[in-house]
Design a protein around this nucleic acid. Structure first.
Lengths: 196, 196
DNA sequence: TTGACTAGAACGAGCGTTCGATCTATTTTG
DNA sequence: CAAAATAGATCGAACGCTCGTTCTAGTCAA
């Protein structure tokens, strides 16, 4: 009987989350007031505080749901592909796609300084999705696909270019859609770490 | 007769800038109040507003001086080395050194979301120092050192790994001092873009 | 004496949050 | 089964506090 609906009356709660995501990424967390969220979402102050402890609680819920979503996507990628090469490439392709289709989500996940308003949270790059990326690289080394070296260095080199291109794109300094660069940047990135 | 001192009575002005840099990077711009700066710097509110138009003005002065400093350092590097390889490697080494020795400076330059409190400013990655980095890469292509491709892609790949390692280090998830990784990460990064 | 500099109290605006009222749907009771 | 009770959800006015900034008065070197 439980769980027929994901949340009881999830509608308003979701409206708040969607509005907060949009405002937090567009204007920044501190430049967004609870009144802004009230106005844009059409949900009253009282209702917001019914669903969330405080403003930080809104951001935390947003952050958690995005991390969890990525965790799921990365799990699927790891199940779908065997080689580290294919897994890592799929990760980059996925990140590019999300950055194009849902820039706010990508922005909040990758680009926002969570530490400033979520002091409890660990930094993104030590979150589980980033752990998964390092795991893929570690497996690649064990399988002989990737040259042996410090896993952090290899992961950073393999994904660093792509991630920086995404943040550049979110900054609006990239002319073409990200997809356009995918093959090229993957070729570079893989060559950086591939076993000779 | 001008410029015997960089600023008239630079002492208090500099105290404010140094304190602001420390607080902005440690707690974030919005979590730092003018009272915090007053207290930590020992300079009164009136004095701060004598030197700076407003809080944003403090951040802008900080940002400008850091950008200018990098511009100078990169100019020196370009003058000192001929090959793109040596220039770019020197840039990475410099960035690592600054990140180690002056983490607050590096943090404010590379990691802080200026857009949220300096809406006039262009994003860092379209600032002059980043332009200079792309110029080095472009020259490398002309000289045949670096494989021909989109300059943005090549720059991103060449410097992306190092820059991400720096931000990881600022997040505290890197165990060794950055210098320890320099040779390794440069080897990867250069291999990613070098002409075959 | 002047003008750059310092000082810190005071101000008004805007913030995050609280609170009591009201509405709605579900459950309990006689 | 109807009525009463309960709990969940919604609302927005109001509160208290902190913030960035202003202002007036005072200091001191030239």
């Amino acid at each position: 009987m439980i769980d027929t609906q994901p949340q009881p009356s999830a509608s308003n709660r979701d409206k708040v989350l969607a509005t907060a995501l949009e405002l937090f990424t567009r204007k920044g967390y501190f430049n967004t007031s609870m009144r802004d969220i009230t106005r844009e979402s059409g949900v009253s102050t009282g209702s917001i505080y019914h669903y969330f402890r405080d403003k930080e609680g809104v951001a935390a819920a947003l952050y958690q749901s995005l991390i969890e979503r990525m965790r799921g996507e990365f799990d699927a990628i790891m199940a779908r592909h065997d080689s580290a090469h294919d897994q890592c490439r799929a990760v980059v392709a996925l990140l590019f796609r999300i950055a194009e289709e849902e820039p706010a989500e990508m922005s909040f996940m990758l680009y926002v300084k969570h530490k400033e308003f979520l002091p409890e949270e660990r930094p993104v790059c030590s979150s589980e999705p980033f752990e998964q990326m390092r795991t893929m690289v570690r497996r690649g080394m064990e399988r002989g696909e990737i040259e042996q070296r410090d896993v952090l260095v290899a992961s950073t080199c393999l994904f660093g270019g792509a991630i920086r291109l995404i943040t550049s794109s979110l900054d609006g300094i990239v002319e073409q859609p990200l997809q356009h660069y995918l093959d090229d940047i993957w070729k570079c990135s893989w060559r950086a770490v591939a076993a000779s």
